[in-house]
């Protein structure tokens, strides 16, 4: 946990055709609805999500299980049918033809949560890493061997492992292979879906460090999905807090952690254990009120921040200084913005 909380925004390598103003990834109004099943109505798993990820930065996406984090990541990668707009390097991905989309996948890659199931069990490391190179032809066929060695070196694995199969590796090593596969084609953007939550704590730190150093060297941007706030604090520049399919708070990591605006963020932060037995015991003695925020009243008339969205048609999103924003949804009755400050 030695990485400083606030990391400076790194300068990315210049991408051809990419304007300075537009972030690598721009998500607007993203929505994912799972169709109705027998006895259940359709579920809006992700509802009106807006995100921007500038080049070379990391956005952490946190929230409890079922809040729609993973679904958001998969929808951005166009692995799920979704509504709204996802722009990668200035190009709209929604409605793209399948062939064209496959081409765009060179710029966006995926690191899955479980390294035990996300590698083809009957392919060697070599085969796994060479596959994206062959598909996207980023290096000539004669250069694939050298590139595989380079990738293994990049993620800290010996070149000798290339002929081995995934089951011969530990979880941390497998996750390194998964990361190497994702970086094989030099993507601009990688979705890391809980990349460390299946690993031991010590290995977690190594993988987070690896991801951070790779970002510094390659200028890649991450959407880092996690439920562990401490991990996000280490790796992310900015953090988005998701609840019930919506982003309820978004801002610089240091800012959000120090001054949470939304009651849900506060609950999440309160749930993080403190490494001081006395403090922790005192906190457990007086647990925070765990209201089900979903049942919170919808703002009628004025919202908690004193705006009337129905009348003036403004978004339910309130900006504070430093680009820190919060939603006025899911506020339990009686909780005022000031109450949420520590």
């Amino acid at each position: 946990m030695s990485v400083p909380i606030s990391q400076q925004h790194r300068v990315p390598p210049v991408e051809a055709g990419q304007s300075d103003s537009e972030p690598v990834l721009m998500v607007r109004d993203l929505g994912v609805t799972f169709p109705a099943r027998r006895g259940h109505s359709a579920v809006a798993a992700v509802d009106v999500v807006d995100l921007d990820i500038p080049a070379g930065t990391t956005l952490g996406l946190v929230g409890e299980s079922g809040s729609g984090k993973t679904t958001t990541g998969r929808a951005i990668l166009q692995l799920l049918p979704s509504s709204g707009s996802v722009r990668l390097l200035g190009r709209e991905l929604g409605g793209m033809r399948p062939g064209e989309l496959r081409g765009m996948r060179r710029h966006m890659q995926f690191v899955l949560q479980n390294p035990y199931s996300s590698l083809h069990p009957r392919m060697t490391v070599e085969g796994i890493l060479a596959e994206p190179l062959r598909v996207h032809r980023t290096v000539p066929a004669s250069g694939i061997d050298a590139r595989v060695d380079e990738l293994l070196d990049l993620v800290g694995l010996d070149a000798e492992v290339r002929r081995r199969y995934p089951h011969e590796f530990s979880g941390g090593q497998r996750q390194r292979i998964v990361i190497a596969r994702a970086l094989a084609v030099d993507p601009d953007f990688v979705v890391c879906d809980e990349p460390v939550s299946a690993l031991d704590v010590r290995i977690q730190a190594q993988i987070v460090e690896l991801l951070t150093s790779l970002q510094q060297r390659l200028g890649v941007s991450y959407l880092f999905i996690a439920h562990d706030l401490a991990v996000v604090q280490q790796i992310a520049d900015r953090v988005a807090v998701m609840y019930a399919g919506r982003i309820v708070e978004l801002g610089d990591v240091a800012d959000v952690y120090a001054r949470p605006r939304h009651p849900y963020t506060r609950i999440l932060l309160d749930a993080v254990p403190v490494p001081d037995p006395d403090v922790q015991r005192a906190r457990l003695a007086a647990p925070p009120v765990q209201a089900d925020l979903r049942s919170a009243p919808e703002p009628e008339g004025e919202c908690v921040f004193g705006r009337n969205h129905r009348e003036d048609g403004s978004p339910e999103w309130h900006l504070f200084d430093g680009g820190h924003g919060a939603s006025c949804r899911y506020w339990p009755a009686g909780v005022r913005p000031d109450d949420t400050r520590a």
């Binding site: 496959r102 996948r105 995926f110 899955l112 590698l119 596959e131 596969r181």
Partner: peptide
């Protein structure tokens, strides 16, 4: 529905290659 098939899709493989190389061997 296995993870490695989703991984293959996210890498950008064609449907044919996914079906023959990543599903059939299983």
């Amino acid at each position: 529905r296995w993870d490695h098939v989703e991984a293959a899709r996210s890498v950008g493989l064609s449907e044919f290659r996914i079906a023959t190389r990543h599903i059939l061997p299983m």
